[in-house]
Design a protein around this nucleic acid. Structure first.
Lengths: 334, 334
DNA sequence: TGGGAGGATTGAAACGCTTCACATGACGAT
DNA sequence: ATCGTCATGTGAAGCGTTTCAATCCTCCCA
């Protein structure tokens, strides 16, 4: 049974299809009793508007596209949920996908969003998506960068000061008496990672006597953390750092597993550990994790708000919103 | 600048629009050199197909809808990722939303999916969605239940035997010497919760001397777990259970925080703890968590496969796939 | 009584695509 | 030379909306 269309509703309510469309979109301009008759007809036929037809006519959809970096990182899950809620309040839905840090998946989602003619795109990019976003903007699809600042400031962005976060973390480690510090991070191509590293380096530079070892990994997962942690455990004590700053909490949890549970090294006594993101599980890990907290929900909301404004008015100046991170100190570092 | 349409491409390539559509959809029936000319024209104009128009014409979209119970539960995140991958392999995209255990949000997503004319719906339901799904199926949108069996078997489902899981968990607790066991779970309206409880009760019934206390909560979050755990800690020792079976890992982690970290009761010595889902963080929590593992990815894949088959052929008999859970024993219970 | 004003409704065009019956032409078989 | 076949390409219809100019009433005022 094919579903009913405006035409069927119009026939049943004995009005024109134009009127049906009006009660759907501007009920205030049609006579109350007509509204009622049409509404009744819609119920009888259990009419459901065909979004594709609407979209074809008006030129764009009621959906926003969102590409995040990782599906397993609760930071992005929280961000996504907040974005959905905020969008829903404005009558939009969010189509969310995660690139898992792969450029091909990222490109795949952008293709999809373009075919779908989404109203706008939120993205936490892996590769250099700015040229691509520029092309999309020329066609009326604005973009907002999330958790990342556009290098040339031509796009709005909502981010957290990752340099400050890195500095916060490492300064804390130094001030609590550590000096041989290791930074463990994912591909340095990811801005968040390189910024956190930069912050770490600044903290080191400000404190003579402290040194930084940089371990570069291929990703930011628990698995990678375990791998890196195992490597630390295998070293002779004299070559081990006395503190580790991990580029995110998943990594930190992996390090914790390898160092504390498998390697039996005391945390924080032998090695102190600081993570990043302050995910829900950070406070509940084997040794509760000191972590740099980012306002994930707020980021999502702000990004959606800005995106919708730009969708309304394409000539808006790009804005850069930067939130400040906050250090949450727990047992893993004190 | 409005984006190019088939008409523009056709004009530039000096063919009819029908031919352009053919190179898009059945390139094998058009002459190779024509294909090339058209492809070139598409590149020149950076043509992007308008999915809404395509969909309007063919009657349904290339998307699947997915509603999960919770966005913060990694079990569903893993399931979603697997479903996305599986759908992508078949040329479909997944629009995922989570109800956060709220019926209104669940209904909202179903509305959206119906307006979008998705090809099919995967759902892990909160309320009784069967009548709703039935209506959608009459209109050509099949549905598959995920992590839940349809009460009347009129829909296909992919689930895990939650009764067996509950039995597994509690039998393990009893066999390791506990007898005063508490079940802590979210709203009993959720099938997963009531099934796990039923399994727990079966295990108790099979072992004379063991007793079960049932604590019912409003949700399955870390927060709720902390609340319940605090209550246990405040009790006099004689009224405390010697083991807790939590309906999921988030709850268990909350319990852990309240009992072990705030309440300073030894786990597992004073209270043993078993969770459910074996999420990524279970093995890395304060006290590594014994948990019942479900094949989350496999569930997602299977569900998508079945759904797509039913989308092809509406007259397929509904199938019930039930996977068996597995107990992963860690420090929190031994 | 004629004429506006203005509210309510109508009807048709257009959005961009797919589909399908049909046209065209080349070529081999008869 | 005629016909059928096959490969290729064409053109128009139609999917379900929204939008907007045009029409139709009704009521009020001069």
């Amino acid at each position: 049974m094919a579903s009913a269309s405006v035409k069927d509703v119009a026939a049943l309510a004995r009005v024109s299809i134009g009127t049906v469309s009006n009660v759907l979109n501007r009920p205030e301009i049609v006579a109350p009793e007509t509204v009622e008759r049409v509404t009744l007809a819609m119920q009888k036929l259990s009419y459901v508007r065909n979004e594709a037809a609407r979209q074809l006519r008006v030129g764009h959809s009621r959906a926003l596209g969102l590409v995040t970096l990782s599906g397993s990182n609760p930071f992005f899950t929280e961000l996504t949920t907040a974005a959905e809620d905020c969008a829903a309040a404005a009558g939009y839905s969010v189509i969310a996908g995660n690139s898992n840090e792969r450029k091909d998946r990222e490109a795949g989602y952008l293709n999809l969003f373009e075919e779908l003619r989404v109203r706008g795109v939120l993205i936490s990019p892996v590769g250099n998506v700015v040229p691509r976003l520029r092309r999309m903007r020329e066609r009326g699809i604005p973009g907002v960068l999330v958790d990342r600042v556009s290098s040339d400031l031509s796009f709005s962005s909502v981010s957290v000061d990752d340099v400050a976060g890195g500095e916060l973390a490492v300064t804390h480690l130094i001030e609590s008496g550590r000096s041989r510090i290791a930074f463990v991070g994912g591909p340095t191509g990811i801005r968040q990672v390189s910024d956190r590293l930069k912050g770490a380096q600044q903290a080191i530079a400000a404190h003579p006597g402290a040194g930084l070892e940089v371990i570069t990994l291929d990703g930011l997962s628990v698995q990678e953390g375990i791998r890196a942690g195992t490597e630390f455990v295998e070293r002779p004590r004299s070559h081990r750092p006395d503190a580790i700053f991990a580029a995110n909490d998943l990594l930190a949890i992996g390090l914790l597993q390898a160092i504390f549970m498998q390697g039996h090294l005391a945390i924080p006594q032998e090695i102190a550990l600081v993570g990043y993101d302050d995910i829900l599980f950070a406070g509940a890990s084997v040794v509760p994790l000191t972590s740099v907290r980012q306002p994930s929900g707020l980021i999502g909301e702000t990004a959606v708000t800005i995106l919708l404004e730009e969708a309304e008015d394409a000539d808006l100046e790009p804005r850069q919103v930067v939130y400040q991170p906050e250090l949450v100190i727990r047992a893993s570092s004190s």
